[in-house]
Amino acid sequence: MLEKNNSMDEVVVRIRDLHFSRGARKIFDGIDLDIRRGQVTAIMGPSGTGKTTLLKLIGGQLKPQRGTIEVAGQNVHKLSRSKLYELRKRMGMLFQSGALLTDITVFDNIAFPIREHSRLPESMVRDLVLMKLEAVGLRGARQLMPSELSGGMARRVALARAIALDPMMIMYDEPFTGQDPISMGVLVQLIRKLNDALDLTSIIVSHDVAETSAISDYIYVLSNGRVVGHGTPKALQETDSAWVKQFVQGLPDGPVPFHYPAPDYAEELLAGGES
């Protein structure tokens, strides 16, 4: 759609040497990452590694202490507020909770970004909303309130809202968590299909290895603030890195320890009362 020079066309999100901490806790300790146009890229890692944080950094809601994040060739954290908002219109984001506005209907939720950012007549807003709902298979649910939706439906509505402004990319935060097998299957297919049909670039953040690998073109594995492995799903299955193997194959103990850091067990038992 957008004509740009070729070198920029390739990589939509370019992350270099990203450092981020919350208080004393280091969350990212030098991350390099490229998200390529037209691909579905998965970012995987155990809970608490900072996957959600990474999406918020890309969206400019958080600021890194060091390093750069470029989206479509623009350094997200150097943009003025209005430029950043312009850029955000081109990035859809699907929150883990769906983040639908709870006091308005499904229809109004999807119309919300369209009404906020354009002066289209109501008849056209209606057509656009119905198109987006049709794409996720929920045209019939438009008069429901968010509280009346099942978990899977809520994510699909949120997905329809994320594509309402025809973005160039979508970020999914744990789209499969807590879904029953059927809605999981629906979502998996939907993400891939929308990516290809709408010419999008997708980033999926997840710890559901099997589902995510099935539709990803490229995978990054994060652990302890670093990228510990990356490659195509196939390459990662055959990796000889212990980190990645533990994660991809779901082994309980390995380089990622089962135990939270603690003093020696025997010593602590003997020390007695002073917890």
Partner: peptide, 8 residues
């Protein structure tokens, strides 16, 4: 947060 990401 969702609104912010919709540039609102």
């Amino acid at each position: 947060s969702g609104m912010e990401m919709m540039a609102v």
